[in-house]
Structures are given as structure tokens and as C-alpha cells.
Design a binder for these strands. Structure first.
Lengths: 196, 196, 196, 196
DNA sequence: TATGAATGAGGGTTCATTCAT
DNA sequence: CATGAATGAACCCTCATTCAT
């Protein structure tokens, strides 16, 4: 039955890829199940064999894409082994922001829909869980209670500010904004975690 | 005629209040014009005499509610005249967060829909424009280019983190979170504006 | 009370002129009473003081405009006193067609809505009644029973063919069509009225 | 599956028949999609599976009905093989007019909505295309440039005059009108095509 | 006479979901 | 598993008409 299972997985994946493209192009509410099915080359009814509804699929997509972003950033920062803790943190965030600036539709999609809850659910207990990663970089015990708060604040600050800055260049442009953001992030870390 | 104009103002206000309640209860996309009109006790067509569509009304509501929040916070901070700059900033934010915690539906509504653009449009050129207010408190020239960036970051940080913290108590509870937030805000201010 | 009556007539006339412009621009069904009233600078309710509804006004307008066309044509043909009967008939039709080609919106408006009934009602018993006019030109008694039929056929033929020819140049262009039309008209006259 | 396709054809046909009845009874603009669907015993949405909108349906109906008329007339004229060209032309037109007089609602519907453009689109390239038919009858090459003009004029003359004559008996009754019309048609043919 | 705010029936259209095939 | 025709509730919005002022 390998073939059938393959076929099943193929259809599901094609539905996911297709719907992601459509969500980016037209927004979620303006993308219909018909659109997705037609684009994926399956019948409308088939959609319901794999997903409960549009929003079931949406959450899975967001988690998947957030994962990819972080994976990319971590892979890149991996090569900067000689630099200090601060530089590593900034390198990771810098990579993510650059990716988002290159792919503004992805930024729009993620930002409008990402919540801390989905984010944690998607990453925790994986090798991408940001808490232990930051713990390692900042040389702090992973169960330090302030660590999670700091990570939470940094992620929210970055994600909340990135949206307007990248998409609207308001109140300042992306490049003008970066130094202030990075200085602020480091200030938060130093203030709350006391790492030099 | 005074009577007619009164009536018009009343209708508009009733429509706004009604729709705010409905937006909170059911979410914007699930609230229909029919709902709003019926609840407000006017005919469907009457809605269109006052608003272009649902989203016109929505933007006006957000602006209105954000204004109220800030007005409240400023009024309260007014009585703390003896305290220093840092204390005043925190007092204002503290008041806003307390208001939001008391009225979680308002928090949900504002957070889901507030954007820096709408925010600035609603407040700029009014006595509530946050830039000159912060300039006054922090004793910085209102046209200092870094000021707007800092205000932007603080507002985004507060609004982005408040959502999860107040509504989900995740990753920590509101009360546990406050000190970290305030320390971070002050760290940002000191780092970027260099005020003691 | 002359002033008040003047005022009344002024408003009515302004409504007629305005609505004619709007009918030409947007078509009758897409022109609303609101449009007309706004454009004429009166309140919506005022419209109903002068007209029963849109279609009441429409019929009056058509009659009025058809009258103008014919008046223009007759006035022009008046100067061609030396020519024969055939030439006079053609001259009149030629003038009307030229007017319509210059004012295609008028053509559209009249053609879509003109009926023989409205036409006769508008013109009969006036100095523009086509029956006695043609009787004079063709030197036939005005009560010749075949005269009315011939006039009817000619008017319908001209008005029905003009529409497509002028607006769509289909099946041939206006200039290519004219000779055939005029030869046909004369053929009908000669065949049915036996005038040399 | 044959069953499904049959069902589809049935539904489409039922929608067309139903809407034709309704258009006749109430006029097109006063007939709603709801009416049509309800009368046809299908859901409103089903309408949109088969037609883009009311006017898509309308055009198809007109074309269909015009086709039927002509088919009927040609079939009848077929039996008059011994008569000359003039007699054949008149026989065809006579048949069409008789059909229209029997079915005045059809006359109303067609006349109000038929345009040369729709007519040609509906018939050209079919065995009902009037140009080659007349070419055959009148013994003229089908690409004679004057032929199309003459056919155009005849069709417009017949269709424009038929309306008032049949529906209003104005300016004369149907039976009184016929001879004049036929003499005129033949006069046009002889004048413009020079066939004896 | 004149106004214009208010009405509300009704229009066209969309689309998530079902179910017989 | 897969299909896609059929559904019909629900939506937004328009606009002729009324009537209190």
C-alpha cells in the first residue's frame, strides 16, 4: 500500500503548497476552497478528506513557515562560532529580518497570523526551540525563569516592529531602524539577564 | 434644525456603540451590517448614511478607543507631578495596561486591529500625540529623530506582549511580567535616548 | 405670483436638462433620482413634486428631443426650394442622420426608447407632423391612406438601420450605407405612392 | 456518467424555458434570478453554474428563439420550390410574421432585445445564416457586397415595423400593412440588387 | 413649496459544505 | 478514495419613496 499512501501524501502536500501561494497572493479570507482545490488539481470534496477547513490548514502552514525561517537563521549563525554572545543573537535576528524583507508576502502572512501560542507549539521540544538555543548562546541555564520572558519580549518586539518598518517604511526605513532595534535588544538582554 | 442634527449624532453614536459590542462578541468578520443595524434599532440603509462600510466604522472605532485609553492614562499621570521622567513613563504605560486588563475584550479588539498607521493618524496633531508628550516627559526635543523610533518600539513592544500576557498568562502572568517589561522599556530609553 | 411660477418652471427645466445629460452619460437605468436631484441642485423630494417617476420624465424628454431633430431638418430643407420632391425627402433624412452621427449619445437615447406611438403623440397636430409635411413635398393628398404607411415604413427603416450603422459600423460604415438607404427609400416611395 | 450529463442538460433547459416565460410575463428587468430559480425548482446558486448572469441567459435565449423562427420559415418555404425568387423571399418573411403574430409575447421579447450583432453571431456559420440563403434564392454571389446591406435593411425594416403593426395595429392593421411591406421589400431588392 | 434623513424590500452574487455517484 | 453538481443561507449594498420638519 506504499503507493496509495504516497498518493495521499502527495495530494495533501500539493494542497498545502497551493494554498500557501494563494494565501500570499490574495489573502486568506479571499482564498476559497474552490481556488485551492482547482489550483491543486483535485476536486473540491477532496479537500475535506485532508483538512477540517481553511483555518486548520492555515495554522499548520504558519508553523511550518516559521520553522523554516528559524532553521535558516540558525544554520547561518552556526558559521559565526568565534563571535561573542551579543553578536550571535543579533546575527540570528538579522538573518530572519533579511529573509522577511526579501519575501514581504511571507512577512505579511506570518505577522498577521503568528501568535506566541502557535509559535511555541510549533517549535517546543524540537531542536529549534528558541529557549534552549538562547540559553546556549547567552550562557544562561535553560530553566532560568527570566530567560523565557526575555525571549518572549525580543520575539514580540522584533515581529511587531518589523511589520510596519518593512512594509510601510514608517516611521523610518528598514536600514535606519536596524541599529536602534539591535541596541534595544541588547539593552533588554543586559538589563534583564545581566550578561555582560 | 437642532433637533435633526441631534438625532443624527445620536444615531451615529448608537451605531458605533452597538457595533463595538458586536465586534467584541463575535469578531468583526462575523458581524454583519444587518446585525449592527438591527441591534441599533435602525434600518440597514441607515448604516450607509453614516459609514462607507464595516471597515470604515472599524477604523473610526479603533481610533476612538485608543484615544480614550491614552486620555485616561494621561489624566492619571497628571497627578504624579513630583516624580521623575522614568516614573512618569511607567505610570502611563501601567495605567494603559491596567485598563486593558480590566477590559479584555477591548484589548482583543485593539490588538487585533491597531496598526501604527491608524494610531498616528488618530492621534497626531491632537493634544494626545505621543511624540510631543514623551518629548516633554523625557526632556528631549520633539524633533529628535530617535524619539519617534523609541516611541514606536515601546508602543509595539507593549501592545504586542500585552496581548498574550493578559489573555493567556503565557509565558508568565501579567503581574510577573510587569517588572521585566518596565525594566526593558527603561533600558531601551536609556540606551537610545541617553537620558539618565 | 409670476416669480413663484418662474421658479417652479426653472426647477422643472433644470431637472429635465440635468436628467437628459445623465441619461446620455450613464443610461437610464443607471441614473438614479438621487443623481438627478443632486446634479440639479434640488432635494430628492423635490423631484416628486414635478414628475411621477423616472419614466414619466423619460417620455417627455424623448418627445422633446425628437421634435428638435425634425425642426432642425425642416428648417434646413426649407432653403432647398428649387429641388425636386425626391431630393427634398433625402435632404431631410440626410440632415437627421448627420445630426445623429454628430451626437451619438442622442442617437442611442432616442433609438432605444423611441416608439411610433410616442413619436406621433409628440408631433401630430403640430406644425411638425410628418404626414402633412410629406404630403406637401410629395404632392399627395394628406389623407391618402398609403401615405401614412409609407412614412411609417421610412421612419422605421431609417431609425432601425441608423442605430447599428452609426454606432457599430456594422455591416458597413455610415458613408457606405447612405447611398443604399436613399435608393431604397426612393424605391419605396415610387413603388407605393407612384410618384415619378 | 450519462446520467449526470443528462441531468445537467435538463436543468439548463428547464432554466431557459422558465426564464423565457418569466421574461415574457414580467419583462427582463423585473425578473429576478430568484424568480427563475424558484420557478425552475433549483437553488439560486445553481443558476450560476449554467449562466454568468441574467444577460448571458437573455442573449442565449434570443439567439435560440430567432433560430427557431428562421428554421420554421425555411422549412416551410422549402415546399414552394416552383415559385420565383421574389415569391420565395416573401414566403419566408410571411411565415416569420405569421409566427410572430401568433406569439405576440415572443415578438415583444425579440423586438425589444434583438440586435443585428446578436443576430449575426447566432446565425453566421450555421446553415441558417441569412446571407447565403438569400444569395441562393436571389441568384447572387454570396460575397456581393450589396447583398449584406440589402439583407440588413430588409431585416431591420421587417422587425422594426412588425412591432407596432402587430401589437398596436398602428398606423394600420397587420393585414392592411402586409401588401405595402412586401411591395417595399421587393422594390428595395430590385433597386439595389437589380434582379428582375 | 422644499427638504433630506430614514426606510427596508430586494437585488445579485459567493462559497463552504454535502452526498450521490 | 475521489468527484463535482447542487445547495441555500448569508452577505453587502442600492435606491425609489415617504414624511416630519
Amino acid at each position: 500500500m506504499g503507493k496509495i499512501d504516497e498518493n495521499k501524501t502527495q495530494k495533501k502536500q500539493r494542497l498545502m503548497e497551493t494554498s500557501f501561494q494563494l494565501f500570499l497572493e490574495k489573502g486568506i479570507s479571499r482564498t476559497t476552497i474552490s481556488d485551492i482545490a482547482a489550483q491543486a488539481g483535485v476536486a473540491k470534496g477532496t479537500f475535506y478528506l485532508y483538512f477540517k477547513d481553511k483555518y486548520d490548514l492555515q495554522e499548520k502552514l504558519i508553523a511550518h513557515k516559521a520553522k523554516q525561517l528559524i532553521q535558516h537563521a540558525l544554520a547561518n549563525s552556526f558559521y559565526e562560532t568565534r563571535t561573542g554572545a551579543d553578536e550571535k543573537v543579533i546575527a540570528i535576528i538579522d538573518d530572519i529580518l533579511d529573509e522577511l524583507q526579501k519575501d514581504k508576502k511571507l512577512l505579511k502572512f506570518i505577522n498577521k497570523n503568528l501568535s506566541w501560542g502557535i509559535f511555541r507549539r510549533a517549535l517546543s521540544r524540537s531542536e529549534l526551540d528558541p529557549i534552549p538555543i538562547f540559553a546556549g548562546i547567552l550562557d544562561v541555564p535553560a530553566d532560568d525563569p527570566s530567560l523565557e520572558v526575555v525571549v518572549y519580549m525580543i520575539i514580540e518586539l522584533v515581529s511587531a516592529t518589523a511589520h510596519n518598518i518593512i512594509l510601510e517604511s514608517d516611521p523610518v526605513t528598514f536600514n535606519d531602524f536596524k541599529p536602534w532595534l539591535y541596541r534595544s535588544i541588547l539593552a533588554i538582554i543586559h538589563e534583564c539577564l545581566g550578561t555582560a
